[in-house]
Protein backbone atom coordinates (compact mmCIF):
# COMPACT_ATOMS: atom_id res chain seq x y z
CA UNK A 1 0.00 0.00 0.00
CA UNK A 2 1.90 2.97 -1.25
CA UNK A 3 -1.02 5.11 -2.27
CA UNK A 4 -0.49 7.86 0.25
CA UNK A 5 3.21 8.02 -0.47
CA UNK A 6 2.53 8.92 -4.08
CA UNK A 7 0.32 11.81 -3.09
CA UNK A 8 2.04 15.13 -3.03
CA UNK A 9 0.53 18.21 -1.56
CA UNK A 10 0.37 19.77 -5.01
CA UNK A 11 -1.58 16.81 -6.35
CA UNK A 12 -4.15 17.04 -3.67
CA UNK A 13 -4.56 20.76 -4.08
CA UNK A 14 -5.16 20.65 -7.77
CA UNK A 15 -7.57 17.78 -7.50
CA UNK A 16 -9.40 19.32 -4.58
CA UNK A 17 -10.34 22.35 -6.60
CA UNK A 18 -12.34 20.27 -9.03
CA UNK A 19 -13.90 18.15 -6.39
CA UNK A 20 -17.45 18.54 -5.22
CA UNK A 21 -18.30 18.70 -1.59
CA UNK A 22 -20.26 15.58 -0.66
CA UNK A 23 -20.70 16.24 3.02
CA UNK A 24 -20.70 19.66 4.57
CA UNK A 25 -20.92 19.81 8.34
CA UNK A 26 -21.57 23.23 9.77
CA UNK A 27 -21.33 24.09 13.46
CA UNK A 28 -22.48 20.65 14.59
CA UNK A 29 -23.30 20.36 18.28
CA UNK A 30 -24.16 17.14 20.05
CA UNK A 31 -24.88 17.35 23.75
CA UNK A 32 -25.54 14.58 26.22
CA UNK A 33 -28.01 15.60 28.88
CA UNK A 34 -26.92 14.58 32.38
CA UNK A 35 -28.41 15.55 35.74
CA UNK A 36 -25.51 17.91 36.33
CA UNK A 37 -25.52 19.63 32.98
CA UNK A 38 -24.93 19.01 29.30
CA UNK A 39 -21.84 17.12 28.23
CA UNK A 40 -20.62 18.81 25.09
CA UNK A 41 -19.53 15.74 23.21
CA UNK A 42 -19.33 17.57 19.89
CA UNK A 43 -19.08 21.32 20.12
CA UNK A 44 -19.27 23.56 17.09
CA UNK A 45 -17.57 21.22 14.65
CA UNK A 46 -17.37 22.11 10.95
CA UNK A 47 -15.66 20.26 8.13
CA UNK A 48 -16.20 19.10 4.57
CA UNK A 49 -15.75 15.78 2.85
CA UNK A 50 -15.03 15.90 -0.88
CA UNK A 51 -16.03 13.48 -3.56
CA UNK A 52 -14.06 10.19 -3.51
CA UNK A 53 -11.91 11.36 -0.64
CA UNK A 54 -11.05 9.50 2.53
CA UNK A 55 -10.89 11.72 5.55
CA UNK A 56 -9.52 10.36 8.81
CA UNK A 57 -11.02 11.43 12.10
CA UNK A 58 -8.59 10.96 14.98
CA UNK A 59 -8.29 11.91 18.60
CA UNK A 60 -8.21 10.22 21.95
CA UNK A 61 -11.08 8.19 23.40
CA UNK A 62 -14.00 10.38 24.33
CA UNK A 63 -12.99 13.27 22.09
CA UNK A 64 -16.25 13.04 20.17
CA UNK A 65 -15.17 11.41 16.93
CA UNK A 66 -17.62 8.51 17.14
CA UNK A 67 -20.34 10.86 18.32
CA UNK A 68 -19.69 13.00 15.24
CA UNK A 69 -20.07 9.95 13.03
CA UNK A 70 -23.24 8.85 14.80
CA UNK A 71 -24.64 12.36 14.41
CA UNK A 72 -24.06 12.23 10.66
CA UNK A 73 -25.90 8.89 10.56
CA UNK A 74 -28.54 10.37 12.86
CA UNK A 75 -27.95 7.53 15.28
CA UNK A 76 -27.08 9.50 18.40
CA UNK A 77 -28.72 7.60 21.24
CA UNK A 78 -30.54 9.36 24.07
CA UNK A 79 -29.65 11.11 26.32
CA UNK A 80 -27.53 12.47 23.47
CA UNK A 81 -29.10 14.98 21.10
CA UNK A 82 -28.05 17.04 18.11
CA UNK A 83 -28.54 20.49 19.54
CA UNK A 84 -27.36 22.61 16.67
CA UNK A 85 -25.76 22.86 13.28
CA UNK A 86 -26.33 21.44 9.84
CA UNK A 87 -25.27 18.16 8.25
CA UNK A 88 -25.53 18.70 4.50
CA UNK A 89 -25.20 15.48 2.50
CA UNK A 90 -25.49 16.15 -1.23
CA UNK A 91 -27.25 19.35 -0.29
CA UNK A 92 -29.86 17.78 2.04
CA UNK A 93 -29.74 18.73 5.71
CA UNK A 94 -29.77 15.39 7.51
CA UNK A 95 -30.27 17.08 10.86
CA UNK A 96 -33.78 18.09 9.83
CA UNK A 97 -34.93 14.74 8.42
CA UNK A 98 -37.31 12.38 10.19
CA UNK A 99 -39.12 9.11 9.72
CA UNK A 100 -39.40 7.75 6.20
CA UNK A 101 -37.36 10.58 4.65
CA UNK A 102 -34.48 9.76 6.98
CA UNK A 103 -34.77 6.01 6.35
CA UNK A 104 -34.65 6.68 2.61
CA UNK A 105 -31.34 8.52 2.92
CA UNK A 106 -29.83 5.89 5.16
CA UNK A 107 -27.76 3.29 3.30
CA UNK A 108 -28.86 4.78 -0.04
CA UNK A 109 -26.62 7.79 0.46
CA UNK A 110 -24.65 7.03 3.59
CA UNK A 111 -23.58 3.70 4.98
CA UNK A 112 -21.82 2.56 8.13
CA UNK A 113 -18.97 0.12 8.54
CA UNK A 114 -19.14 -0.68 12.25
CA UNK A 115 -16.27 -1.52 14.55
CA UNK A 116 -14.55 -4.76 13.76
CA UNK A 117 -16.01 -6.34 16.88
CA UNK A 118 -18.11 -9.47 17.12
CA UNK A 119 -21.54 -7.94 17.38
CA UNK A 120 -22.07 -5.85 14.29
CA UNK A 121 -23.88 -8.62 12.44
CA UNK A 122 -27.11 -10.21 13.58
CA UNK A 123 -25.99 -13.58 14.99
CA UNK A 124 -29.11 -15.50 13.97
CA UNK A 125 -29.29 -14.31 10.38
CA UNK A 126 -27.27 -15.56 7.43
CA UNK A 127 -24.96 -13.06 5.73
CA UNK A 128 -27.00 -13.03 2.52
CA UNK A 129 -30.19 -12.21 4.42
CA UNK A 130 -28.53 -9.29 6.19
CA UNK A 131 -27.29 -7.79 2.94
CA UNK A 132 -30.61 -8.52 1.23
CA UNK A 133 -32.37 -6.76 4.08
CA UNK A 134 -30.57 -3.54 3.26
CA UNK A 135 -31.22 -3.88 -0.47
CA UNK A 136 -34.88 -4.79 -0.15
CA UNK A 137 -35.60 -2.09 2.41
CA UNK A 138 -34.79 0.46 -0.29
CA UNK A 139 -35.50 -1.21 -3.59
CA UNK A 140 -38.42 -3.42 -2.64
CA UNK A 141 -38.66 -7.17 -3.18
CA UNK A 142 -36.11 -8.47 -5.65
CA UNK A 143 -36.18 -11.55 -7.87
CA UNK A 144 -34.36 -14.24 -5.88
CA UNK A 145 -31.90 -15.16 -8.59
CA UNK A 146 -30.76 -11.61 -9.36
CA UNK A 147 -30.52 -10.80 -5.68
CA UNK A 148 -28.30 -13.79 -5.06
CA UNK A 149 -26.06 -12.88 -7.99
CA UNK A 150 -25.81 -9.31 -6.77
CA UNK A 151 -24.88 -10.33 -3.23
CA UNK A 152 -22.27 -12.80 -4.43
CA UNK A 153 -20.79 -10.05 -6.61
CA UNK A 154 -20.67 -7.74 -3.63
CA UNK A 155 -18.88 -10.38 -1.60
CA UNK A 156 -16.43 -10.90 -4.44
CA UNK A 157 -15.76 -7.15 -4.53
CA UNK A 158 -14.40 -7.32 -1.00
CA UNK A 159 -12.55 -10.54 -1.68
CA UNK A 160 -14.88 -12.97 0.03
CA UNK A 161 -15.65 -16.38 -1.49
CA UNK A 162 -19.22 -17.12 -2.52
CA UNK A 163 -19.65 -19.71 0.24
CA UNK A 164 -19.86 -16.81 2.71
CA UNK A 165 -23.28 -16.13 1.15
CA UNK A 166 -24.98 -18.86 3.16
CA UNK A 167 -22.94 -18.61 6.33
CA UNK A 168 -23.78 -17.26 9.73
CA UNK A 169 -21.64 -14.51 11.31
CA UNK A 170 -20.17 -16.86 13.93
CA UNK A 171 -18.75 -19.03 11.16
CA UNK A 172 -16.60 -16.15 9.88
CA UNK A 173 -13.30 -14.82 11.20
CA UNK A 174 -13.05 -11.24 12.43
CA UNK A 175 -11.52 -10.01 9.19
CA UNK A 176 -14.13 -11.79 7.07
CA UNK A 177 -16.92 -10.31 9.15
CA UNK A 178 -15.46 -6.89 8.67
CA UNK A 179 -15.25 -7.39 4.92
CA UNK A 180 -18.83 -8.67 4.89
CA UNK A 181 -19.76 -5.40 6.56
CA UNK A 182 -17.89 -3.48 3.86
CA UNK A 183 -19.77 -5.45 1.18
CA UNK A 184 -23.01 -4.56 2.91
CA UNK A 185 -22.02 -0.89 3.12
CA UNK A 186 -21.43 -0.55 -0.62
CA UNK A 187 -24.52 -2.56 -1.63
CA UNK A 188 -26.49 0.54 -2.64
CA UNK A 189 -23.58 2.69 -3.88
CA UNK A 190 -23.82 5.36 -1.20
CA UNK A 191 -22.02 8.63 -1.70
CA UNK A 192 -20.60 8.50 1.84
CA UNK A 193 -19.34 5.59 3.90
CA UNK A 194 -18.46 6.05 7.55
CA UNK A 195 -16.07 3.47 8.95
CA UNK A 196 -15.97 3.50 12.74
CA UNK A 197 -12.62 2.06 13.80
CA UNK A 198 -12.78 -0.50 11.01
CA UNK A 199 -9.64 -2.31 12.07
CA UNK A 200 -9.76 -2.25 15.83
CA UNK A 201 -9.87 -5.71 17.41
CA UNK A 202 -8.14 -7.22 14.39
CA UNK A 203 -4.57 -8.42 14.20
CA UNK A 204 -2.11 -6.44 12.09
CA UNK A 205 -2.19 -8.70 9.04
CA UNK A 206 -5.97 -8.67 8.93
CA UNK A 207 -5.91 -4.92 9.57
CA UNK A 208 -3.90 -4.54 6.44
CA UNK A 209 -6.30 -6.67 4.41
CA UNK A 210 -9.27 -4.67 5.65
CA UNK A 211 -7.42 -1.41 4.96
CA UNK A 212 -6.61 -2.52 1.43
CA UNK A 213 -10.22 -3.57 0.89
CA UNK A 214 -11.39 -0.12 1.95
CA UNK A 215 -8.94 1.56 -0.37
CA UNK A 216 -9.87 -0.72 -3.24
CA UNK A 217 -13.56 -0.04 -2.74
CA UNK A 218 -12.91 3.68 -2.71
CA UNK A 219 -10.89 3.56 -5.93
CA UNK A 220 -13.44 1.41 -7.71
CA UNK A 221 -16.64 3.05 -6.60
CA UNK A 222 -15.42 6.56 -5.96
CA UNK A 223 -17.22 6.83 -2.64
CA UNK A 224 -16.20 9.31 0.00
CA UNK A 225 -15.26 7.90 3.36
CA UNK A 226 -14.85 9.07 6.89
CA UNK A 227 -12.54 6.69 8.73
CA UNK A 228 -12.50 6.98 12.49
CA UNK A 229 -9.64 5.49 14.41
CA UNK A 230 -6.75 5.62 16.79
CA UNK A 231 -4.38 3.82 14.53
CA UNK A 232 -2.12 6.54 13.10
CA UNK A 233 -0.23 3.97 11.03
CA UNK A 234 -3.39 2.92 9.28
CA UNK A 235 -4.38 6.54 8.81
CA UNK A 236 -1.06 7.34 7.16
CA UNK A 237 -1.68 4.53 4.69
CA UNK A 238 -5.34 5.06 4.06
CA UNK A 239 -6.57 8.62 4.25
CA UNK A 240 -6.16 11.74 2.13
CA UNK A 241 -6.84 14.25 4.85
CA UNK A 242 -6.73 13.99 8.59
CA UNK A 243 -9.02 15.79 11.00
CA UNK A 244 -7.92 15.94 14.63
CA UNK A 245 -10.48 16.31 17.37
CA UNK A 246 -9.92 17.18 20.98
CA UNK A 247 -12.58 17.40 23.69
CA UNK A 248 -15.46 17.77 21.26
CA UNK A 249 -13.75 20.33 19.03
CA UNK A 250 -11.94 20.20 15.76
CA UNK A 251 -8.38 21.42 16.34
CA UNK A 252 -6.64 20.72 13.04
CA UNK A 253 -7.53 19.56 9.52
CA UNK A 254 -4.88 19.06 6.88
CA UNK A 255 -3.67 16.65 4.19
CA UNK A 256 -2.30 13.58 5.91
CA UNK A 257 1.31 14.23 4.84
CA UNK A 258 1.19 17.70 6.31
CA UNK A 259 -0.21 16.47 9.60
CA UNK A 260 2.60 13.98 9.95
CA UNK A 261 5.41 16.30 8.86
CA UNK A 262 4.29 19.70 10.04
CA UNK A 263 1.63 19.39 12.68
CA UNK A 264 0.74 22.89 13.86
CA UNK A 265 -1.62 22.44 16.79
CA UNK A 266 0.23 21.54 20.01
CA UNK A 267 -2.20 18.64 20.58
CA UNK A 268 -1.53 17.23 17.12
CA UNK A 269 2.19 17.60 17.75
CA UNK A 270 1.89 15.60 20.95
CA UNK A 271 -0.29 13.03 19.21
CA UNK A 272 2.21 12.54 16.39
CA UNK A 273 5.13 12.39 18.81
CA UNK A 274 3.39 9.75 20.88
CA UNK A 275 3.07 7.30 18.00
CA UNK A 276 5.10 4.37 19.22
CA UNK A 277 8.02 3.58 16.98
CA UNK A 278 9.20 0.05 16.45
CA UNK A 279 12.72 1.39 15.77
CA UNK A 280 13.38 3.20 19.02
CA UNK A 281 12.00 3.46 22.50
CA UNK A 282 10.95 6.92 23.59
CA UNK A 283 9.02 8.19 26.59
CA UNK A 284 5.31 8.80 26.08
CA UNK A 285 4.59 12.46 26.49
CA UNK A 286 0.83 12.65 26.41
CA UNK A 287 -0.60 12.26 29.87
CA UNK A 288 -4.10 11.33 30.86
CA UNK A 289 -6.29 13.00 33.41
CA UNK A 290 -5.64 16.64 32.72
CA UNK A 291 -8.68 17.26 30.60
CA UNK A 292 -11.33 19.65 31.79
CA UNK A 293 -14.89 18.74 32.68
CA UNK A 294 -16.77 18.47 29.38
CA UNK A 295 -19.92 19.80 31.04
CA UNK A 296 -18.22 22.98 31.93
CA UNK A 297 -15.42 23.90 29.54
CA UNK A 298 -13.20 26.77 30.70
CA UNK A 299 -13.28 30.02 28.72
CA UNK A 300 -10.66 30.16 26.03
CA UNK A 301 -8.91 27.28 24.32
CA UNK A 302 -10.03 23.76 25.25
CA UNK A 303 -6.46 22.47 25.23
CA UNK A 304 -5.10 25.07 27.68
CA UNK A 305 -4.78 22.63 30.60
CA UNK A 306 -2.45 20.32 28.71
CA UNK A 307 -0.79 22.72 26.32
CA UNK A 308 2.96 23.30 26.75
CA UNK A 309 2.73 26.69 25.02
CA UNK A 310 -0.22 28.12 26.92
CA UNK A 311 -0.41 31.94 27.14
CA UNK A 312 -2.85 34.42 28.63
CA UNK A 313 -4.98 34.79 25.56
CA UNK A 314 -5.52 31.00 25.51
CA UNK A 315 -7.32 31.30 28.83
CA UNK A 316 -9.67 33.99 27.56
CA UNK A 317 -10.45 33.59 23.88
CA UNK A 318 -11.38 30.37 22.15
CA UNK A 319 -9.31 30.19 18.94
CA UNK A 320 -11.44 29.64 15.82
CA UNK A 321 -10.51 27.05 13.21
CA UNK A 322 -8.72 29.09 10.50
CA UNK A 323 -7.12 28.15 7.22
CA UNK A 324 -3.55 29.04 8.14
CA UNK A 325 -1.98 27.75 4.97
CA UNK A 326 -3.59 26.35 1.89
CA UNK A 327 -5.86 23.47 3.00
CA UNK A 328 -4.34 23.48 6.45
CA UNK A 329 -6.83 24.45 9.15
CA UNK A 330 -5.74 25.00 12.75
CA UNK A 331 -7.45 26.31 15.86
CA UNK A 332 -4.59 27.81 17.86
CA UNK A 333 -3.44 31.23 19.05
CA UNK A 334 0.23 30.42 18.47
CA UNK A 335 0.01 31.34 14.82
CA UNK A 336 -1.57 34.76 15.03
Amino acid sequence: MTVSATHTVGDLESSAKNRNVVLDIRNLKVYYATPTGNVRAVDDVSFQVYESEIIGLVGESGCGKTTTAMAILRLVQPPGRITGGQILLDGTDLASLHGQALRDVRWNQMALIPQGAMNSLNPVMKINRQIADAIEAHEGRQPAKELKERIINLLATVGLPSRVYGMYPHELSGGMKQRACIAMAIALHPSLVIADEPTSALDVVVQRVVGETLLDVKERLGVSMIVIGHDMGLMAQLVDRLAVMYAGRMVEIAPVETVFHEPLHPYTQLLIESIPSIKQRKPLKLTEGLTHDLRNPPPGCIFQLRCPHVTDICREVNPPLRELRSRHFVACHLYE
Binding site: L75, L112, P114, P123, V124, A137, C181
Partner: peptide, 29 residues
Protein backbone atom coordinates in the same frame (compact mmCIF):
# COMPACT_ATOMS: atom_id res chain seq x y z
CA UNK B 1 -27.19 -1.93 23.00
CA UNK B 2 -25.77 -4.44 20.53
CA UNK B 3 -24.00 -3.12 17.45
CA UNK B 4 -26.24 -5.03 15.07
CA UNK B 5 -29.26 -3.10 16.31
CA UNK B 6 -27.52 0.17 15.50
CA UNK B 7 -26.45 -1.20 12.13
CA UNK B 8 -30.01 -2.35 11.40
CA UNK B 9 -31.23 1.17 12.02
CA UNK B 10 -28.40 2.63 9.96
CA UNK B 11 -29.49 0.39 7.08
CA UNK B 12 -32.75 2.30 6.99
CA UNK B 13 -34.88 -0.76 7.69
CA UNK B 14 -38.51 -0.23 8.60
CA UNK B 15 -38.95 -0.03 12.38
CA UNK B 16 -41.12 -3.16 12.44
CA UNK B 17 -38.39 -5.11 10.67
CA UNK B 18 -35.77 -3.96 13.20
CA UNK B 19 -38.15 -4.83 16.04
CA UNK B 20 -39.03 -8.34 14.90
CA UNK B 21 -36.03 -9.67 13.00
CA UNK B 22 -33.26 -8.03 14.97
CA UNK B 23 -34.75 -7.24 18.40
CA UNK B 24 -37.33 -9.88 19.25
CA UNK B 25 -35.64 -12.61 17.23
CA UNK B 26 -32.49 -12.38 19.35
CA UNK B 27 -34.17 -11.65 22.67
CA UNK B 28 -36.54 -14.60 22.49
CA UNK B 29 -33.77 -17.23 22.65
Amino acid sequence: GEDYMILAEAKGLAPQRVFWSYGVRNSIL
